[in-house]
Simulated scan of single mutants.
Amino acid sequence: MTVITERSAPGPKPDIDPEPKTVPELITFGVIVATPIIALIAAVPFAWGWGLGWTDVAIAAVFYVVSGLGVTVGFHRYFTHGSFKAKRPLKLALGIAGSISLEMSVLDWVATHRKHHKFSDKEGDPHSPWRFGPGFWSMAKGLLWAHMGWLFETTRANREKYAPDLVKDPDIIKLHKWFPVLAITSLVAPALLGGLLTWSWWGMATGFFWGTVIRIGLLHHVTWSINSICHVFGEEAFESRDKSRNVWWLAIPSFGESWHNLHHSDPTCARHGALKGQIDISAGVIRIFERLGWAYDVRWPTPERLAAKRVNV
C-alpha cells in the first residue's frame, strides 16, 4: 500500500543569506575603508606641491558623478524602490554605473537597503546608529557602526528574501557575477586615462590617486553619511516611523540623497528634495531620462501627498 504524506509548506526565508561574506571580501572592505582615509590625509600636501592638475580634476569629477549617480539614481531610486521604470539599455547603464562605485554588487546593495527600510532604526536594521541606544558614548559607537562598522559583519542580507525580483532578472544576475570585473575596471580606468591624456607615467599615477583612491573614498564616506549622520542630525519635515532627517550640507555631494526624511516618509518617491530650495540632482537626472523617453512611470511627488505627510508645525 502506498502511503501519501502531505508536503509541508516552505517556511519563511531567513534574514541572513546562506552565502556568508568571505575572508577576501572582508579584507577588501578593510582596504577600501583604510586606503582612502590615509590618502585623504596625504591629499592636502600632495595637491599643494605638485600632485594635482586639471586632468586629474576632470577624471575624478567624471568618475565621481557617473558612479555616484549610478548609486543614487540606479541602485537606490530605481533598483531598490522602483521610483521609475527604465528601458533595458538604461537599466544596464545604471547597473554598471552603480557597480563602479565599489560599494556592493547591485544585488547585495538592494537586498541590504530594503532590509534597512524594513527595520529602520529598530532591531534588524543593518546599519542604524541607534543600535547601541541613546547617550553620548552609545551614539558615538552607533555612528561609527552605521558609517562603516556594519560592513565587517560576516553575514549579508538574504538576497532571495529582500530582492526576489532581482534574483529572477537575468540582467541583474550577470551584473552581479561581473561585479569583480567592473570593480577592477573602476580601479584601473582613471590611471589609464591619466596616462593617455598626459602621455606620462606621472599622469597615470596622479590619475590613480585622484580618480580612484580619493574619488572612491569621498563617494563612500558621503554614502555612508546618509546611513549615519542623516539618522541622527538634521531637520524633520515629514512624518516617518524612524529617525531619518534632512542634512542640507550633504545635498550636493550626495546628489540629493541627504533629503533623507521625505525618502523614509515616502520611499518610492523619485524626488527626495521636494520642498522649496532643496536641490536634488538625482531627481533632475531622472527628469532628463523621462524627457528622453528612457524612463517612464516616474513617481513624482504631488502637493496632496506631501501635505498629507508634513509634520504639523
Results as ranks from 00 to 15, higher is better:
Pro12Ser: 13
Val65Thr: 13
Arg77Val: 03
Ile172Ala: 13
Ala61His: 02
Lys243Cys: 03
Ala58Pro: 00
Arg299Asp: 09
Met1Lys: 08
Arg271Ile: 08
Gly74Pro: 01
Val44Ile: 15
Tyr78Ser: 04
Ala183Glu: 10
Ala43Ser: 15
Asp280Ser: 04
Ala307His: 11
Ala93Ile: 13
Val3Ala: 08
Gln278Val: 03
Thr154Ser: 13
Tyr78Cys: 04
Ile172Met: 15
Val44Pro: 00
Leu92Thr: 13
Thr302Pro: 00
Asp15Pro: 00
Leu182Phe: 14
Arg310Val: 07
Asn158Val: 00
His176Pro: 02
Ala251Gln: 03
Asp17Val: 06
Pro126His: 07
Trp150Arg: 03
Asn312Tyr: 02
Thr268Val: 13
Glu257Ala: 15
Leu196Trp: 15
Thr80His: 02
Ile37Arg: 01
Ile286Thr: 14
Ile184Pro: 02
Arg310His: 10
Leu90Cys: 06
Tyr78Asp: 04
Phe75Leu: 11
Thr2Gly: 02
Val110Phe: 05
His221Lys: 06
Leu94Trp: 09
Ala274Lys: 02
Ile173Thr: 09
Val247Gln: 01
Asn158Phe: 06
Ser282Ile: 06
Pro45Thr: 08
Ala295Thr: 11
Glu239Asn: 11
Gly195Ser: 07
Leu151Thr: 01
Val110Met: 04
Gly217Ala: 09
Leu94Ser: 08
